[in-house]
């Protein structure tokens, strides 16, 4: 779209929506697969992990934006972004885990146990890496991260819902667990291709 669409309030919403739908990190880029296959058995746990991923992605994308813009680029250390981003993400999740462990036991039981799982979730690293390829400012980068995380949340919750329904019926032995999940994801990503023509950012 033209400059008019990508600026102002409408532009911000567009960034969020396109990151969540047209560029859905799980369904169009197939990132964050391992934790998705493992945890999407139930809607409850899917929502928990999805929410944790959304939160961590939003904040770490913003943090990584700052580090990239004000440290890596000026020092000409662009090539270190992989290492830098993953270390920052890992440290951040550890820190958040400690904080909610101490101050909010109920939130810890809802989210906290997923935090170690997502320390190495490639979707989160992926979103930070896609972010540096786009000409975003700080707010836009944050919304891009939040949108990407929300897209992952949406996808894993939908998959969890479908798996809950499907487990009630009979499946061939070889398709149980990851097999049927991959087929579900495949069909869902076909559906998400439908979004790709709607917005371009």
């Amino acid at each position: 779209m033209e400059a008019t669409a990508t600026h102002g309030f409408a532009g911000l919403i567009l960034i969020f929506v396109s990151a969540a739908f047209t560029d859905n990190v799980l369904l169009t880029r197939f990132l964050g697969m391992c934790s998705c296959l493992g945890v999407s058995k139930k809607v409850d746990t899917s929502i928990g992990l999805g929410a944790a991923v959304t939160f961590v992605t939003s904040v770490t994308t913003a943090l990584n934006y700052l580090v990239y813009k004000f440290v890596l680029l000026p020092l000409d250390l662009d090539f270190l972004r992989f290492l830098t981003f993953i270390v920052i993400i890992a440290a951040f999740t550890q820190l958040v885990e400690m904080i909610i462990d101490r101050y909010s036991p109920s939130l810890y039981y809802a989210l906290g146990i997923f935090l170690p799982l997502i320390t190495v979730n490639c979707a989160i690293l992926g979103i930070s890496l896609f972010m540096v390829n786009k000409p975003y400012n700080f707010l836009e980068a944050f919304l891009f991260g939040a949108g990407g995380g929300f897209g992952w949340f949406l996808a894993i919750t939908l998959i969890g819902g479908i798996r809950e329904k499907i487990n009630e019926s009979m499946l061939p032995k070889g398709l149980e667990g990851p097999g049927i999940t991959l087929i579900i994801i495949g069909i869902m990503s076909l559906a998400f291709i439908g979004f790709s023509g709607i917005i371009k950012v």
Binding site: V71, L75, L77, F79, L80, T84, V87
Partner: peptide, 11 residues
């Protein structure tokens, strides 16, 4: 040197 210093410092 800068790269190593940066990584070590960040770590």
């Amino acid at each position: 040197l800068i790269a190593t210093g940066f990584l070590a410092g960040m770590g």
